[in-house]
Design a protein around this nucleic acid. Structure first.
Lengths: 332, 332
DNA sequence: TATAGAATTGGGAGCGCTCCCAACCACCAA
DNA sequence: TTGGTGGTTGGGAGCGCTCCCAATTCTATA
């Protein structure tokens, strides 16, 4: 069996309490005691029993990552991988464990509810993707602190970490304008999603500010995935754009494929800019100009935000909006 | 604060012990008591405190999913998605929580070690992909029970769940032979992986058994990913095969693209068979004949195996090899 | 040197559960 | 009536930790 606090206490000649203080980095321990106890802990590779700690403190030192989507989605979306990595890292650094909830739609809602009240996490992080009304209600009813990555469409006083999608789209579009492109098309994200909507707004803002006409033929709605980038671009090409702003990197990649198939050159005949700065964009031919979204960092931040929320049960709301930046490569 | 066993005991007029028995489905409780207590538990939506339970039993009711993420293809591989789904489902059904470990390469190995000894899981599941020596040593040293999905290259007395890759490859190749194809090529998996190696062996076995020549030009090594299927197929086409056995569906899909680009018809000019039976194979044009691997079920089984291992600390080794089956569609 | 006050240390109580043994109750056979 | 039996039930002990208060030691000052 593993060691206990009491073992360490005995071996070091101090008491359980002092050992506990050392482990938790509390003040009020002499240097000598701290050194000796630390040494023994290291030697014995001692780790306090999490269950006992949880029972005594009422906190279980675990946060949940709630993903209201089929698993397929999670592991295919490179965006999500980076997010999960950031979250995972932050948990590790803060000595929290990360519990993964994969909840499939509909039927499993009840199981979320069950889990939320199970007392197995102190709080959780979730992504705003595809929130419907009952879902958000369930979360709110849980009484557990949580942080959303992204933003909810109409619940505004939630804790979230999100990108400034508007600014990002403006950066992208302004970049195209600055390069002298005139017929700038866009493949948007889904218009029932906050991010999709804002990225279109940013595009329109910049065209307008620069006195360019917003031509309906040059705006087409995609779904953020590669396939839709391809099909949308095919349609757009009929209207002879000289640049395309795709609201996601995956769509930009799809669009590049379509452009190549039409035997046009990037960026000579037509420029392409993406959004997200996924790692694979750098390996495209040509490398894709895009808007950098610090996804990993956002995951990390979400955890830190959650920890703050958990320390502040009296309702302070934490909202962070991250500024994106432009990454210029050879596709524009 | 949440209710406790004692609350339920008081409300029902029975004792803590009896309530505990009801909750854990133990025998030796009268029907009347069981009914009344069950009713009150439902009414109050009571869930026993996990930490207390863990402390009392010494089991924390959580298993870890360890993902040695050195290889980014783990994520992009739809194989992994299905696996995770099965694992997640099994955990839910057995009332275990699933803890996610995303471990980054090299440097973070030590952190795995730390976690393993942290007592936050009762056991864990991991995938065999890209195990290097220090990795497996770390796992073995942990003293925690674990189950591998797949097989380790040279450690044979580990608990695992794996597919009979040999039989699968034989099924696939035999199918091609039966259909009358003579120049059967193969795009193999990486030859330093057990699955890759076995699938090639199966291919050779069948050719040999049927008196066909094994032609080196018709064997080419891929890496299981779509891209490599495409490039390998391009090379193979020079040698005029009339059928291709790709050791993964993704490679088969890549190969089909290459074949179409060469303006050849599937299966008239050249047949293609894959391996895995990923959902997307059914939607190919033409739908892909492939070897069915019950991935979801394997994930599920891995959890059940782990539970068995945890009940048998005295070293019984559980190894399951699943038989694949042939799924005939229109590509052959 | 005495003593207040600060720094350090020790140990009881309790978190909510499970495990185990003892107690209780009916019921039946002797 | 007594004793034995099996089915139920109750409650003490203990899991390993934190929290809190009391005890002890040290330090600085009069």
């Amino acid at each position: 069996m593993a060691h206990t606090l009491e073992d360490i206490a005995e071996k070091s000649g101090y008491s359980r309490s002092t050992v506990s203080r050392v482990i938790n980095g509390e003040p009020g321990v002499s240097k000598k005691a701290r050194q000796q106890i630390t040494k023994i802990i290291k030697e014995l590779n001692f780790h306090p029993n999490q269950a006992a700690r949880a029972l005594a403190t009422g906190k279980i030192n675990t946060i949940g990552l709630l993903i209201p989507e089929t698993v397929n989605f999670i592991f295919t979306d490179p965006y999500f991988q980076l997010l999960a990595q950031g979250i995972s890292k932050a948990c590790e650094n803060n000595d929290y464990a990360l519990l993964l909830w994969l909840t499939e739609p509909e039927i499993e809602r009840s199981s979320i509810k069950k889990y939320l009240n199970h007392g197995i996490v102190d709080g959780f992080i979730t992504a705003s993707i595809n929130f419907d009304e009952p879902m958000i209600d369930t979360l709110l009813q849980s009484n557990l602190p949580f942080v959303i990555i992204g933003r909810h469409a109409y619940e505004f006083d939630l804790n979230y970490v999100d990108l400034d999608n508007l600014a990002g789209a403006e950066l992208a579009t302004q970049h195209l304008v600055d390069r002298g492109y005139k017929r700038i098309a866009t493949i948007t994200g889904p218009q029932d999603m906050f991010a999709g909507e804002e990225r279109l707004t940013g595009y329109c803002n910049v065209l307008h500010a620069n006195g360019l006409v917003i031509e309906e033929n040059l705006i087409i709605e995609g779904d953020f995935l590669q396939e839709s980038g391809y099909t949308c671009a095919k349609k757009l090409l009929a209207f002879k754009p000289d640049a395309i702003f795709a609201a996601s990197d995956m769509m930009a990649i799809g669009a590049m494929n379509a452009i190549r198939e039409a035997e046009l050159h990037i960026p000579e005949d037509i420029a392409v800019i993406g959004f997200d700065n996924l790692p694979l964009t750098a390996q495209q031919k040509p490398p894709l100009t895009t808007i950098h979204q610090p996804i990993h960092q956002m995951g990390y931040l979400a955890v830190e935000t959650l920890l703050k929320v958990m320390d502040n049960p009296d309702g302070e709301v934490f909202q962070t909006i991250i500024r994106p930046s432009l990454v210029t490569r050879q596709s524009t």
